[in-house]
Amino acid sequence: MDFIQEGFTQAYTLLRSLDPATYSAISSTLRASGLAMAASLLLGIPLGYLLGYFDFRFKKQIRIIVDTLLALPTVFIGLVIYALLSRNGPFGEAGLLFTIPGIAIGQTLLSLPIIIALTATAVEAADRNLHITLMSLGANSRKIAASTLWEVRLGILAAAVTATGRVLTEVGISLMVGGNIKWHTRTITTAIALETSKGEFGMGIALGLVLLLIALTVNISLAGLRRRI
């Protein structure tokens, strides 16, 4: 299988020669994933805290639903978001179909359950004495929430790493909602799918390596963040 070796040399050439199509795909990938991660962290961390910290009716049932959503297939999310964003769909007016924000909406749906479930688990696993300590040092509810989340920051970071991995590498949503439009919504993963269908296996491998490189960069910076906090 010489196309694997070919993939390595081609990956190097692509990055080295600043191939505009490749960089456009890298940019689309990062923009969609970045937006999705920002949105899902902003929504998911507070929701995860609520789910992990408080006791309320149907908590167990909600937990099961969230855990089930972890298994959402990306193609299915893509299909649902397509149906919602299609010009004939309920949110068609927004004109988000075949755009990066459209992909980001789908990817947010993909990563939100991960953030919520793992944040809730981290908050639940926090020491019972943490709560007593915070209260007895004079914290109010808001401070308790903030300090508890800060205590479990490594768990939340792990959630972010897991979700980033899924979002960066998914192909179903990008393909269905983004449409794989060259220079616009073609991400690295949809480009790999396209190159493979064209028989350009070497190119597919090259793009896969580029994606791995991005994941590596993201994880190195997150690991750096982990050491600092």
Binding site: R31, A38, L42, W150, R153, L157, L225
Partner: peptide, 23 residues
Amino acid sequence: IMGRILILFVFFALLSGSLILTA
């Protein structure tokens, strides 16, 4: 503490923001 949590958010916000700019 809120400030530190904000750092996390800002990190991701900057990430996505800068990417949108470059793109």
